[in-house]
């Protein structure tokens, strides 16, 4: 399989990465080189094989259902590009 320019533009939008028109062809070529490389996986017979979900089988530990952190709003917003009264500020979302 390979991708066309329209698919590259669509994937860039899905990934929320602005892709200037001048970069589309190069990105398309690189993605197609990768897709060509992974094509060989089609040679493998995977009938009846379970997909891996956990590389080291183990039972997940569960924490007690209690509050164990919090009251650190100032720390949480400390690295925000824009914040006010412990809120993250973003451009208007709803008109």
């Amino acid at each position: 399989m390979s991708v066309d320019a329209a698919t590259v533009r669509r994937v860039a939008h899905l990934a929320r990465i602005a892709l200037p028109e001048g970069d589309v062809a190069k990105m398309q070529a690189e993605i197609n080189a990768m897709l060509g490389f992974v094509e060989q996986l089609n040679e493998v017979n995977v009938d009846g094989v379970e997909p891996m979900t956990s590389v080291m089988p183990m039972a997940m530990k569960k924490r007690a259902d209690v509050v164990n952190d919090g009251e650190i709003a100032a720390q949480i917003v400390k690295n925000a590009p824009q914040s006010e009264d412990d809120y993250f500020m973003v451009p208007k979302v709803v008109e």
Binding site: M1, V3, T7, V8, V11, A12, L14, A15, I17, M27, E30, I31, M34, L35, V38, L41, N42, V44, V46, V49, E50, P51, M52, T53, V55
Partner: peptide, 28 residues
């Protein structure tokens, strides 16, 4: 590039052909 490849292989219609197959190969 890697984010875009990842987005593509997880996108509707390609998930089984790429991601699911790769995870089966990983089991092998």
């Amino acid at each position: 590039r890697r984010i875009m490849i990842g987005t593509y292989v997880l996108s509707a219609g390609y998930y089984d052909a790429y991601y699911l197959r790769a995870q089966k190969v990983r089991t092998l």
